[in-house]
């Protein structure tokens, strides 16, 4: 990556790493539409600055950090769509359903998180970065990471319980 035509190098980098970068965008956003936008914007920024970035050892890391930062800085963007759990069907007594409901509720709660909180969770629990490393990646303080992660987890807990099916399940559990 240190010699040759820069534009060609960028094309090769993108062609080779696009699937992995898209998957990361999908983890960050949780849906295909936003993942497309995110990976597109991050690759565009990378392409514009490629002459500088290609001299670094880890262009993929640069793109990933760019995606995380774009995501984290979208906190004021109005959320127009929320993924919601499926329409509840008739409840049946099946212990395996508890796990399904739990996952449904968590997915919905994850999807409803503000982008910045979700980005922090992705870096902390998907990438397994420390608070310090997450702060560095997002360009914020460790305290911000800590508080965002804590608030995100609290929202997830609350969100799981807010889910009607989940609440129904808890209610059933309480009565049995």
């Amino acid at each position: 990556m240190r010699s040759g035509d820069p534009d060609r190098q960028f094309d090769e980098f993108v062609a080779h790493r696009f699937p992995a970068l898209y998957r990361y965008a999908y983890v960050l956003t949780g849906n295909q539409h936003d993942a497309e936008d995110l990976v597109q914007e991050a690759l565009t920024r990378t392409g514009v600055a490629w002459s500088r970035i290609r001299r670094k050892d880890d262009p993929e890391g640069y793109v990933r950090t760019t995606m995380a930062r774009i995501m984290a800085n979208r906190w004021r963007r109005p959320k127009l769509e929320h993924l919601v759990p499926g329409v509840p069907e008739t409840a049946v007594d099946d212990p395996g359903l508890d796990r399904v409901h739990e996952v449904d509720g968590l997915d919905a709660a994850l999807q409803a998180l503000p982008p910045r909180m979700r980005a922090v969770l992705v870096l902390r629990y998907f990438e397994q970065l420390s608070e310090e490393e997450t702060a560095r990646a997002l360009g914020c303080s460790r305290g911000t990471v800590k508080s965002q992660a804590s608030r995100a987890l609290a929202k997830l807990r609350a969100g799981m319980l807010d889910d009607p099916e989940r609440a129904l399940m808890e209610d059933r559990r309480g009565r049995s």
Binding site: Y22, R23, G30, L106, Y125, Q128
Partner: peptide
């Protein structure tokens, strides 16, 4: 649980 759900999203192929 969060780590697991995020990892589950990592399989989305374009």
């Amino acid at each position: 649980l969060v780590a697991g759900r995020l990892q589950a999203l990592d399989g989305a192929e374009p």
